[in-house]
Design a protein around this nucleic acid. Sequence first.
DNA 1: GTTACTGCAAAGTCTTTGCAATCTC
DNA 2: GAGATTGCAAAGACTTTGCAGTAAC
Lengths: 163, 163
Amino acid sequence: MEGKRIQMGQDKTQELLKEKLRGKGLKVTHQRLQVLSVLEENGGRHMTAEDIYELVSVDNPEIGLATVYRTLQLLLDMQLVDRIDFGDGCVRYEIGHLLNGDTRHNHHHLICKRCNKVVPFDDDLLDDLEEHIEKATGFHVLDHELKFYGLCSKCQKKENEEK
Amino acid sequence: MEGKRIQMGQDKTQELLKEKLRGKGLKVTHQRLQVLSVLEENGGRHMTAEDIYELVSVDNPEIGLATVYRTLQLLLDMQLVDRIDFGDGCVRYEIGHLLNGDTRHNHHHLICKRCNKVVPFDDDLLDDLEEHIEKATGFHVLDHELKFYGLCSKCQKKENEEK
DNA sequence: GTTACTGCAAAGTCTTTGCAATCTC
DNA sequence: GAGATTGCAAAGACTTTGCAGTAAC
């Protein structure tokens, strides 16, 4: 089911979170571990706060949605999760690319304008561009987010049939 | 004040909107022309619906915010404006890249994580990548949106001074 | 025992919608 | 005149906040 990408292993990620929390004088709570855990188990998905809330609720029906939001903000600050916004009204989250073996690069997203399907896409062609930017503008690039909008192959066929 | 980029000229843009509206059996209203006009006069800025509302209100205090939202959606569908989201809670709009001489490419954005400054950046290096994607995935790319997160040169200095 | 954290409900944004009045064509 | 469009206010969706009770250290 998994294996599609090299993962850190749940234990290691959890340890990392604990470390970071302690380092900041914050507390290690079940809720924080559970949210991270759900994100890790769903590595390929782009999940809304609500999605995460529902999944954590299975193990812990007591949790509140507000806690999920607060935890996501915290994990975001710690760079353990990434935020993506497909412009459909709610922000989505996924386990941080820093935790996926890769030291810094995110994957990109192909978004179909017709069926709204989102396909992840990996590529490192942006390295050259980042270097170019640093030289041209003095801006020091730490991360990037790239979205392509277009038509997936299925929808291309549909469009052609309609003509 | 302007001149930084090659513009179509206000009259031409307005004519284009009128054409497109008529082509769809829709009506040419003052509000629609005013919204487009404000966007064009502020070519370099990334404006929220509220910003646009306030500027249109100067000439037409009667206009409602809902109309601005409806008009922006319309202009978006017609590809006369572009939408960008910097993740700060509200979506921003700018005059469409199709109207800026360029036939298809948008510019990208460099976003400083520290001072939140946004610097536009033009580049066509993504052509190769788009071609690559089409071959590799069958996805037909129509447009893209690229954001770089990092530190602007000023904030780099500040960071260094703090060390 | 302190201090941070949680859950709940209430409040806050930004955005959309319903509807009668109004403007285009 | 017919039909699209507007402005207003109300509703909606997502997210944040205040606070008393609870859990972590």
